[in-house]
Amino acid sequence: MGDQLERFIVENREAFNDASPSDKAWEGIDQKLSKKHTIWPTIWKVAAMLFMVSTIYLMIDRSQSESEEGPMLSDEFTQAEDYYVSLIAQRKRAIQEQLTPEQQEQFLVDIDQLDSMYLELKKTYQTNASNDRVMDAMISNLQLRLDILNKQLDILQNIKNQNNENDISIEI
């Protein structure tokens, strides 16, 4: 039976190709297609508009927050800064425990000057849109403060050791 159907189609192929659906059938198909297509383009247009509006809002919000606060410091720099600041605070406490207030003032003059320079560098960093040279100078400042404090602690330790040796030799 399959062979007969196939042979019939091959012999009457021209008759099948000439037939076309009526205009009423095309109108029904066109109405069904136009109903489906009118909903999706509208949804996509609304979605695109919402995306554009939210993107513009976020860009404006970010630029305003950066202009108010300045550029954000990197996490790596913030961690390094926290590390140095904690070490500097620890060294300052160690010096303050060993000295009188007048002596502390003399020992910490350079550190106070470097503190104010660091604050100026931080302001410069915020106004110069995150210049790497300024960030390097900030790290150098922190390292210099730590070095000075370490040297001062060494000096105090040497003085303390000399005083202990003198006390021991006097006792003998």
Rank of each mutant, 00 (worst) to 15 (best):
R7L: 09
R7N: 12
I9Y: 07
I9V: 03
N12R: 02
R13S: 11
F16P: 06
N17Q: 10
N17G: 11
D18T: 13
A19I: 08
S20A: 08
P21G: 04
P21V: 10
P21E: 07
S22Y: 03
A25N: 11
W26I: 14
G28W: 12
D30F: 01
Q31F: 06
K35P: 13
K35R: 15
H37F: 10
H37R: 13
T38I: 04
I39H: 01
W40N: 13
P41S: 14
T42N: 01
A47P: 02
A48D: 10
L50C: 08
F51P: 02
M52G: 12
S54T: 15
T55N: 12
I56N: 02
Y57W: 12
L58Y: 13
I60L: 12
R62I: 10
S63E: 09
E66Y: 12
E66W: 11
S67M: 03
S67A: 10
E69H: 02
E69N: 11
G70R: 03
P71V: 12
L73F: 14
L73C: 02
S74I: 05
D75T: 14
E76P: 02
T78L: 11
Q79N: 10
Q79V: 12
E81T: 08
Y83M: 15
Y83D: 12
Y84C: 01
Y84I: 05
Y84F: 15
I88E: 06
K92M: 07
K92G: 01
R93G: 05
R93D: 07
A94R: 03
Q96W: 03
E97P: 05
E97Y: 06
Q98S: 09
Q98I: 03
E102G: 11
Q103L: 11
Q103D: 15
Q104F: 03
Q104V: 10
Q104P: 00
E105L: 13
E105I: 11
F107R: 14
F107Y: 12
L108N: 06
V109F: 05
D110T: 03
D110A: 09
I111C: 05
D112C: 06
L114F: 14
S116L: 14
S116K: 15
Y118C: 00
Y118M: 07
L119H: 06
E120G: 09
L121I: 00
K122T: 07
T124M: 14
Y125D: 08
Q126T: 08
T127V: 14
N128W: 12
